[in-house]
Write a protein that binds this DNA or RNA. Structure first.
Lengths: 137, 137
DNA sequence: CCTTGACTTAGAGTTTACTCTAACAAATAT
DNA sequence: ATATTTGTTAGAGTAAACTCTAAGTCAAGG
């Protein structure tokens, strides 16, 4: 079990931001110490992995507002047909959003490689300039 | 030769932003029509490529302030030893910044692949949930 | 002729995502 | 015992990067 401070250290997200994410609906309400309403937040390893997943989406350009779609737990035991449909809709939306994001990631990968090539070319160019000037013939 | 509007369409950067980048020192002052001080900006293919290079750096997370290091043209014909040293220093800084940025890009690549894996796993998980519920046994 | 797009400076407004403070309570660590 | 960490709400402040408006000029195209 981790406190908010430990999660902060483990993820590199400040405690402010973790509470902010929670308030914004990116992260589900964590369990509290002794089950008290305002008890200290207790995170387990699953929570940690989830936070890291969410943070990865954020770091790769997903908007906070979109990320909220993943926060509510869709794993409730269903009672009636309406609830089943609601959950199916949420799952559909999540899958679609992930598809869209993966497409984006693929574009980013391409661009990243492109920029890397250009950056390396530029560097070679600057290095050549440096070498042309250094020997001072 | 391209006008600012054409460059805007070709790069996807608004004319506002192009002028803003120029003012901020990310982009060198372009040639003007008829050499007039306030003439219309004229960009050639080399300018276009440079703008795309700069934009690539920006898109991959380099700060605008850092990018300014590339704007001043280091290719002036030198007059004295002091100028040679200045240019060498600029070239050194550019190379260092590019090295640093390429390292960042490598990290980003890794993270991107990591997030892509996680996103695909999550998607499979959601798909499985969807399939478990659909047949309704 | 008149719309469209270009130019200027200066500055205001917007968006996103934090980031922190106040002001106070309660629990934990050294 | 005292310092640190955690908790709350509400709201203010910050930073980066745009984004646009004002208010006026200039030049080319249909």
């Amino acid at each position: 079990m981790y406190s908010i401070g430990e999660i902060s250290k483990l993820t590199g997200i400040s405690a402010y931001t973790l509470r902010y994410y929670e308030k914004m609906g990116l992260l589900p309400n964590p369990y509290r110490l002794d089950g008290k309403q305002n008890g200290i937040r207790q995170y387990n390893d699953q929570d940690l992995r989830f936070i890291q997943f969410i943070y990865g989406l954020k770091q790769t350009g997903m908007k906070l507002k979109d990320i909220t779609l993943f926060a509510e737990d869709g794993c409730l035991l269903t009672q009636n047909d309406q609830q089943i449909e609601d959950i199916q809709e949420i799952l559909h939306k999540r899958i679609e959003l992930l598809n869209k994001h993966v497409n984006l990631l693929e574009q980013q990968l391409e661009q990243l490689e492109n920029v890397m090539t250009l950056a390396n070319e530029k560097r070679s160019f600057y290095l050549a300039m440096l070498n042309d000037r250094l020997p001072n013939p």
